[in-house]
Amino acid sequence: MNLNLDFDYLIHVIPHLLPFIPLTLILAFVSMIFAVIGGLILALIKRSDIPVIKQLATVYISFFRAIPTLVQLFLIYYGLPQIFPALSGMTAITAAIIGLSLKQSAYLAEIFRAALGSVDKGQVEACLSVGMTKIQAFRRITLPQATRNALPATGNIFILLIKETSLAFTLGVVELFAQGKILAAASLRFFETYLALALIYWIMIIIYTFLQQALEKRLEKPYLS
């Protein structure tokens, strides 16, 4: 069998891709941090009874869950500066982070809302009854338990995010995928290059999944009888 597959090239191309992993991870991490903060704020608003703001949060979540990530990135990077010229100095990386954070915060808001809701109110009442404030109850009792409830689904969002950073190439950000595209175009070894890319993404996700399982195991400790 004569497979037209150049293993040597596959091995050779990997070191040329590795230096671009940090940018991909930075895009994913920074977007995730903003998305978690935004998602938590949205979840708290959705759980509150603040009129108008609550409805605005609902609209936000509905909008950012609905539109494709690519449309969103283009809207921010190519669209917004047309309306607000001050934004024309925005870098592609900034635009990518904004777009990805906005989108994932909408998804996380629903996950966090459910997780917060699953911690029974009786425990908060117990906090209040022994003289703790609502904020202390949230920080010490509700949030830690909600974190444990939210972790598996939040991890999935992070995995999605790592992969979606590849869309940043459409804005001209040379991250992992963009570099792969450049190398593939130069060598014309498309299969080997993209296979190398796929393997790199796969290994990143495997490592992340392993870390998350370790964390889950730790958070699970109080709940095992």
């Binding site: 009786g122 425990q123 009792i141």
Partner: peptide, 9 residues
């Protein structure tokens, strides 16, 4: 409380 409401964590 009737249902104890202990802090589960």
């Amino acid at each position: 409380f009737q249902h104890y409401n202990l802090f589960k964590n």
